[in-house]
Amino acid sequence: MNIVVEAKQIKKVYGAKGNIFSALEDIDLTVMEGEFVGIMGPSGAGKSTLLNILATIDDPTTGNIVVDGINLTKMNEEQLSAFRRDKLGFLFQDYNLLDTLTVKENIILPLALAKLNIKELERRADEVADKFGIRDILNKYPYQISGGQKQRTAASRAIISKPSLILADEPTGALDSKSATDLLESLKDLNEQDKATILMVTHDAYAASYCNRVLFIKDGKIFTELVKGKRSRKEFFNKVLDVLSALGGGANDVI
């Protein structure tokens, strides 16, 4: 099995002289192809920072990251943009949909930017719309649809270009439990059937229980790691809760 993400000795320092704050300290992370990895930790632990660095939106102070065999630290802005477009899919808590585009236009945007031919583009749009059950809202605008539908639209956009890695930052954060479950089920299907590699930051133990593996971060360092293995989701969920209470601070985030 291939390695999709290999991050070594990631360090992120904010601030200038005198007032330095280190958000990440020597993080090592390896994600294999087809893994569904969760990242948890108290607020301010550095989860979003780590995800943004992997997403090439932010750059690390020091450290080395290889995604899909490509060394990110050696690329210029334009190459990074192309990399994001072709290799990565994003999912954020606040959806990040463009309100000037219809649902369909939002979904196909990455393909349009990659100048894919129109036939293939339409075919893939149909495919993901079916997968996430948003076929009948394709011609609506984001302000006309619900939060759950927005997140499924964002998810469709994240996977339409068949990225090597899907990055999600609290994707269920703004959803009710039904919509959250729908989305998580879809992500699980994607992971199991399409062998998509997913990295998901979450505060929600229930969401984390869908992962194969959960990393816990505290104060910018890796605190521990839980692997689901042969456990049922219920068992895994309880395990996650145990670690969270041991972690402290984050415990109040658990619903």
Binding site: A55, I57, E77, E78, L80, S81, A82, F83, R84, R85, D86, L88, F90, N96, L97, L98, D99, T100, L109, P110, L113, R157
Partner: peptide
């Protein structure tokens, strides 16, 4: 916000 999203999706600054 609009342009931030675009950058995340992979539109380069030049574009």
């Amino acid at each position: 916000g609009h342009y931030e999203i675009l950058r995340k999706i992979g539109v380069s600054r030049k574009d």
